[in-house]
Design a protein around this nucleic acid. Sequence first.
DNA 1: GCCAACGTTGGC
DNA 2: GCCAACGTTGGC
Length: 319
Amino acid sequence: MPPKKSTTAAAASETAASSRPRRATAAPASAPAPALATKKRAAPKPADKETAKKSKKAAPKATTTDDVPKAEPTTGAVVEESKAAPRKRGRHPKGGETTKAAVHEEAAEAQLEDELLDSAAGAEVAAAEEKCELPSALLTSTSGSNYWLLKAEQEDRNETAHNGTVINTRFTIDDLRDNNLATGKPELWDGVRNHVAANNMRAMRKGELAFFYASGGKQGRSPGIVGVVEIVSEAEWDLTTRDPGAYGYVSKEKAGTREKWVVVGVEFRRKFDVPVSLRTLQEHKEGRLSGMQLFRQTRLSVAKVTANEWRFIMEELVG
DNA sequence: GCCAACGTTGGC
DNA sequence: GCCAACGTTGGC
């Protein structure tokens, strides 16, 4: 994360650029999300898990790129802030449902919600998950849309927020699904503090799909792509830059001024039965996946995936 | 503007 | 724990 998510900058402490993102917070109310949510709980923000606040309005959503701040890629000055990105994490509230509509109706939603609330039992979760997933046929666009790859840390790692709160930066695809279900809102992918990653986020359009990449190979895990998420809301200002409960970069600008960093809203779409490991991806590093930004800019938390790369991975590598 | 030192990411 | 990649910092 973070956020960068991937990255760092986060907090003050961070510095690097990459970014890690993080995860995110649930979308603020204003986010255009599916509308179901009734409750808002917030998820924590990158920084926060604890602090969540949320409700504020979200920044203006930028629908056009003009609205969004542009990254300042190269200029130095602007960049001072950036540092790394934080990742966020969220907590999981409980509540609503998330997926896109077509799939669910209210009754079903209510039922799902109840099931989730009642138990975390595997069976229920599995059932809910199944209902949230999109058919494989819908996971590859036939149009010219872009695809993306969002990294999140799958291992426990603590960061200290500005207000002293200790935040676990771990954020898994299960957390994303659970947060979506609980809040009925998309997860805001915040904490990204790298300009290349942020520019990728500004280029994301509603309806585009992204791989959820779990980084971190310790604790017996393997890094790799674990599922698919959908971009459900376009770039908006990342309000975590003003959140004392967040870690990482904090805006020095006056409230109301434009922020440089942005978030996009994402929703769970599918968790692969078997992740496509980094090792497997690397087997095609000199072949079909030779141009992947994942390999060319190894530490970038938000990377672009071409249509050909997407199809190859979905059709040939996803088990 | 150059570049060495340094910090972070993240795979191994 | 090691270390490669890579971004930032900051002296000059």
